[in-house]
Design a binder for these strands. Structure first.
Lengths: 218, 218
DNA sequence: AATCTTTAAATTATAGATAATTCTGCGCTG
DNA sequence: CAGCGCAGAATTATCTATAATTTAAAGATT
């Protein structure tokens, strides 16, 4: 999206690669050759290596010492793990954000939610979903927490996009609405409960992925 | 500790720097010149840069695009933030670990706890503390969660070591004992409650740091 | 005297080149 | 025929060198 011009080359490369991995353009387990990528971006391989370290930190690739990096594979267990972590952290964030939520923010969230309902493909829906969560959690003013949640969210998105690549119908998001209603009524506990269940929904619906989820050994 | 010989140079550098930052040998806000560090380790600056990216991911340094990296500063708010994140995630881990906790593990944890009570300095106590938490949480078998907890733990340790540099008396750790007792009795909820409060203890005791906590603007 | 501009020094970021390690395929041996 | 071991090729990791950017400091101008 925002290809910030003043970013360092390594950051730009990491962003592009991250998008590809999330979108499923790079299959889990596939190798990422540094020379190959360096050539594609018209750079040397040094910034490519730094981009790898970044992606590694986000959990999008795994790096073995002298054997290169490959796209991280995710088992169903790992998806559930991420979902549970998200649930725990998003509930925490919501509890801190709730006192600072204004009507304007909630209205904006509702608008985003409506946009998500009309989304034509998974990617658009996922984007709206991300925006919704960010909107209602950001006022917690805990940057480290928000970054952790963001990383977990991209991990979830990977799974989602891998599962519903082609067939997809926009589901009217009742959970989001329930969360908003509870927040408007000042019932933070109720909102948190729904949020926790909502986040784990991804991990619960197996959703017959059209792309093999497990890594294959070469 | 374990300076694995087969690690890449960048990893080794990042480990050494991490230890220094945690121990407080490098003050918050101080610049890390890549050339200086490269010279000290007898290497070029390229692996140093990769080490920086690793430390950045752990939240130990902050990196501004063309202005170098500096040791991350932590305000009291950030310490509380980390403590709350730890509480949320460790409770989650404990809930999953509890069913797989054996008597052998609990006995080992008790031994570690006793060792911690006898610790002469903060560093030794902190090490025992880390071991205790790792022991009872590891059986949850959620690697991503455990790594996240570990990173948060080092952030906490930084604060702890900055606060009690010289003056220190080993406190008999009642919380650890309470957690063990509850786990032995099969009362997972009780153990989780104590754990959550215990983790946030760090953030609550201000403990008059002997080193300025806030970053100073050069 | 204070501020803005310009210039120099220091430092970061990237490129190109070199050394070391792993992977692959083939031949040899049992 | 299976298994072990040895080149050759490919790839990773690091080093040296170059380009670009920022910090600072000195000089000029108002």
């Amino acid at each position: 999206m925002t290809t910030a011009k003043d970013d360092t080359i390594a950051v730009r490369i990491s962003k592009v690669l991250a998008e590809r991995i999330i979108a499923g353009a790079l299959e889990p387990g596939s190798r990422l050759g540094q020379d190959h990528i360096a050539e594609e971006f018209g750079t040397s391989h040094v910034p490519v290596r730094e981009a790898f370290r970044r992606l590694e930190a986000q959990g999008l690739v795994v790096s073995e010492p002298r054997r290169g990096v490959r796209v991280a594979s995710f088992s169903l267990d790992e998806v559930r793990e991420v979902a549970e972590m998200r649930a725990a952290l998003e509930v925490l964030a919501l509890r801190h954000a709730a006192p600072h939520l204004t009507k304007a923010i909630l209205d904006q969230a509702e608008a985003v939610n409506r946009a998500g309902d009309k989304a034509g493909d998974v990617q658009a829906w996922e984007e709206a979903n991300l925006l919704f969560h960010r909107l209602i959690l950001k006022p917690c003013a805990m940057p480290r927490l928000l970054k952790a949640i963001d990383d977990l969210h991209t991990a979830s998105a990977r799974f989602l996009l891998a599962g519903w690549r082609s067939e997809w119908e926009a589901p009217t998001d009742r959970d989001h609405r329930a969360i908003l209603d509870a927040l408007r009524a000042g019932q933070v506990d109720a909102a948190a409960t729904v949020l926790a269940r909502h986040v784990q929904w991804v991990g619960k619906k197996p959703g017959k992925p059209s792309v093999p989820v497990l890594a294959k050994r070469a």
